[in-house]
């Protein structure tokens, strides 16, 4: 996991809501035992359509995915996050996320920003008209900017801190292992009763 502070890149408008993780990566590609090498499987069914937005030449270098509402619902497969990252995405913008996907994304340092659908639609229009628009996502100032469009985004301060410092949750919890040991002593005694 890498620290996230600011990202500048091109964006891709995925003008859909309720994109489930079966679409992000079909189950048959959730294979192997690595977090890497899943880029070809990303949206693989949809990519068979030459008109699908990921296949458009003008969006070839995109690193920011802008979807509608309820992105990443359904299956808990973390392969969905890995496939997005392996393809080159650093940031997802949507107006909402499936809970498990959201947790998985943050655990891997994939920034998932929540913005109102009205602003997302403005971004889609802008990117469609000018695909070479550079979009800036600044986690320090919590701001998204693309040409004249800009919007502040809200992110939980603790999640923001984790992304800024690339904090590892396991290491963090293990620092408090004494609390877990104390809890287990009490808990197992109660369970035995």
């Amino acid at each position: 996991m890498q620290k996230f502070t600011i990202h500048r890149g091109y964006a891709i408008p995925l003008k859909l809501s309720n994109v489930d993780t079966d679409q992000i990566i079909p189950a048959k590609f959730c294979v192997g035992s690595s977090k890497f090498g899943h880029e070809k499987a990303l949206f693989s069914h949809w990519r068979e359509d030459p008109q699908f937005v990921l296949n458009k030449k003008e969006h070839g270098k995109a690193s920011i995915l802008i979807a509608g509402d309820a992105f990443g619902i359904g299956s808990s497969r973390e392969y969905a996050v890995w496939a997005l990252q392996n393809y080159g995405f650093k940031v997802i913008i949507a107006s909402g996320y499936g809970d498990i996907f959201y947790n998985n994304a943050l655990a891997n340092g994939l920034l998932t920003i929540i913005l109102p659908l009205s602003f997302i639609k403005n971004l889609w229009d802008l990117i469609e008209q000018f695909p070479n628009t550079e979009v800036t996502i600044d986690l320090l100032t919590q701001k998204v900017q693309a040409l004249h469009l800009n919007h502040l985004f809200i992110i939980d301060e603790h999640i923001r801190e984790r992304l800024l410092t690339a904090m590892d949750m396991i290491d963090c919890t293990l620092e408090n292992i004494h609390n877990i040991i104390a809890y287990e002593k009490k808990h197992f005694k109660t369970c035995e009763k």
Binding site: S76, R77, E78, V81, I100, N103, N104, A107, N108, M169, I170, T173, L174, I177, I180, E184
Partner: peptide, 18 residues
């Protein structure tokens, strides 16, 4: 709770979940 793979590792290591 349904969880992702990184969270699986967290439980394996700590028997807890944030």
């Amino acid at each position: 709770f349904g969880i992702g793979t990184t969270q699986v590792a967290h439980i394996l290591a700590t028997q807890t979940l944030a």
